[in-house]
Simulated assay, not measured.
Amino acid sequence: MIVPQIGVGTFRLSGQTVIDSVKNALNVGYRAVDTAQIYGNEAEVGLAIAESALPRQDLFITTKIWTDNYSREKLIPSLKESLEKLGTDAVDLTLIHWPAPKLGISVAEMMNNLLEAKQQGLTEHIGISNFNIELTQQAIDAVGLENIATNQIELSPYLQNQELVDYLQSQQIDVTSYMTLAYGKVLNDPILTEIAQRHQASTAQVALAWAHQKGYTVIPSSTKIEHLKANLDALNLHLEPEEMHLITTLERQGREVNPENLAADWD
């Protein structure tokens, strides 16, 4: 895998809240941080990283290019601005945030612009986010499979997206799961609760362990240090095959994020 198995997410966090969350995460052992241009918190994430005093080479920083910046004129300048905010010469991974087919910029064009950023040394790896099978194939055709590190997609026990996952794994593209707890909706699920009790764990830990055992990277966010620790500990929780199968039965196509003008048709 290129992408670390767990990172701290920063979606919907801002100001001092995101600084504290990232600093606490790094203090308890996280070494990967996920942000995006549209989150409006890259400068705060950069501040938290600087204040942690960890060596840059020990960290894996991911950001995502927003739809306004896909064109040749804008992508590299926007990434340079992100790097300035993050306080680094290069990030480890840069993703196209949404395919946004209605924008009129082809996948080939946006991916080649992103590849140029990699060739300039602004990002070590590049990849995609929220791409379906057809668009992932277009990205591969445009820049080569070796240049697609991951597809970051919404995945949870309630949205398992198995067809897309199978395709990505067959191509050996890392699967990064966001919204793994479905905005907290899975936390009171009876099946997850029963499994959690068996392991003396939390339902959040069970959901994250499920994703980890499926081979996904997870990027949960939290503002509480005890939850950050618990999320990290979830990687040590081993679910039995029958428990993994039980979680499979929870699929309900429960998509939480689906902006009409940015998403393509899901598989």
Rank of each mutant, 00 (worst) to 15 (best):
Met1Ser: 04
Ile2His: 09
Val8Asp: 01
Gln16Val: 03
Thr17Phe: 02
Ile19Asn: 04
Val28Lys: 02
Gly29Ala: 14
Gly29Asn: 12
Asp34Gly: 04
Asn41Arg: 02
Ala43Asn: 02
Glu44Met: 02
Val45Asn: 07
Ile61Met: 07
Ile65Leu: 12
Ile65Ala: 06
Asp68Arg: 01
Asn69Thr: 07
Asn69Asp: 15
Glu73Leu: 11
Glu73Val: 09
Leu75Val: 14
Glu84Ser: 09
Glu84Asn: 08
Glu84Ile: 04
Val91Asp: 00
Leu93Trp: 03
Ile96Thr: 09
Leu103Thr: 09
Val107Gln: 13
Met111Val: 13
Asn112Pro: 03
Ala117Glu: 00
Leu122Cys: 03
Thr123Phe: 03
Ile128Thr: 02
Leu135Gln: 12
Leu135Trp: 11
Leu135Asp: 08
Ala139His: 08
Ala139Gln: 10
Ala142Thr: 02
Gly144Lys: 03
Thr150Val: 12
Asn151Phe: 13
Asn151Tyr: 13
Leu159Phe: 06
Gln160Val: 14
Gln169Ser: 05
Ser170Glu: 10
Asp174Met: 07
Thr176Asn: 06
Ser177Thr: 10
Ser177Lys: 09
Tyr178Ala: 06
Met179Tyr: 14
Leu181Trp: 00
Leu181Ala: 01
Ala182Gln: 05
Asn188Cys: 13
Asp189Ser: 00
Pro190Ala: 10
Pro190Phe: 09
Glu194Trp: 06
Ile195Gly: 04
Ala196Gly: 10
Ala204Tyr: 04
Ala207Phe: 09
Leu208Lys: 00
Leu208Arg: 01
Ala209Gly: 07
Lys214Pro: 05
Lys214Gln: 12
Tyr216Asp: 08
Tyr216Met: 11
Ile219Gly: 07
Ser221Lys: 00
Thr223Lys: 01
Lys224Gln: 08
Ile225Pro: 01
Leu228Ser: 01
Leu232Pro: 00
Asp233Tyr: 00
Ala234Gly: 05
Ala234Val: 00
Glu243Ala: 13
Leu250Thr: 05
Leu250Phe: 10
Glu251His: 12
Gly254Thr: 14
Gly254Pro: 15
Val257Tyr: 15
Glu260Met: 14
Ala263Asp: 15
Asp265Phe: 02
